[in-house]
Design a protein around this nucleic acid. Structure first.
Lengths: 156, 156
DNA sequence: TATTGTTATACTCTATAACTATA
DNA sequence: TATAGTTATAGAGTATAACAATA
């Protein structure tokens, strides 16, 4: 079963993963790389900046959220958040309004155009994942989610 | 159970993930972010460049491997590979030798120092993952690996 | 003609620090 | 004093294209 670890690059040459193959991190990264690339390929026309999709989705799910709160969830730097919200405002997908509870903050809201765009992006994401995860059954998918959540909960 | 999706940022404010929480990609990224950061924190002293660890591990597992073969496995660009192998050579962890089968290629080999360094890095990785994955049982870990591999096999 | 490795370059993303206005 | 947001800047990573040597 040694072959199972190898990846055939050409007909002749097989490359061993060695110890690398023993780690969850490496296996997750491989899958993650593919999912990210597939989603990027499906959304090249929108030239999505990293973090923009998550930011817009979080604003939609939490009307009035602040830039700082987005940073805390997404591990984004606050200066990157400024750039991303700038883009969202330029494209008319979100707006900054003054916060009523803290005048230092901006309260962020999606626009109708932003919601439409978000629907579109989620549709693309769904297609992307459906293709990638087609080989897993419903219960296996739920299992995978549950395991990932268990790990995440501990890490937090 | 609505609260289960929220992440408490302060005592008062809970942030909803909304539709984002429905996707495997988002859940994997969260976990992946943490694993990567934990490993980086455990190896800051070595100032590891992205891809360097994988490259060294692949050279170790495949003595005589070419730069191009490494690129194919790791999704690294060939110009990035040059930089990484340069660093590995400077630090005395790997060497380029002329390939006997193709004079365009370099055949890459680890040095004893490189193997020692690799042992050290794998030990750090093992500790990192052990902490992160402590809440999963042996069988759950194997299950997670198997599911990730099933997905990867299909993607390839 | 195509591939391996190299070099140079430009672009994106990230990290940092200094600044303002508020708390 | 600390926090939210802004700005500017430098660094790291990635992508691209042009090139030489070899297949």
């Amino acid at each position: 079963m040694k072959r199972a670890k190898g990846i055939t690059v050409t007909r002749e040459e097989s490359i061993e993963l060695g110890r690398l193959g023993d780690y969850i991190g490496f296996r997750m990264r491989r899958v993650q790389n593919h999912l990210v690339k597939a989603f990027e390929a499906a959304t090249t026309e929108y030239n999505l900046r990293t973090g923009l999709f998550s930011a817009l989705a979080l604003i939609s799910a939490n009307p009035g959220i602040s830039q700082n709160q987005i940073c805390k969830i997404t591990n984004l730097d606050k200066s990157s958040a400024v750039q991303i919200i700038d883009i969202l405002e330029e494209k008319g997908h979100a707006v900054r309004k003054p916060s009523k509870i803290d005048r230092r903050r901006h309260a962020l809201y999606t626009t109708p155009a932003g919601e439409e765009f978000l629907d579109l992006l989620f549709a693309r994401l769904k297609e992307t994942e459906a293709t990638a995860l087609a080989q897993l059954s419903e219960s296996e998918l739920n299992l995978l989610k549950a395991l990932l959540d268990r790990i995440f909960t501990v890490l937090k």
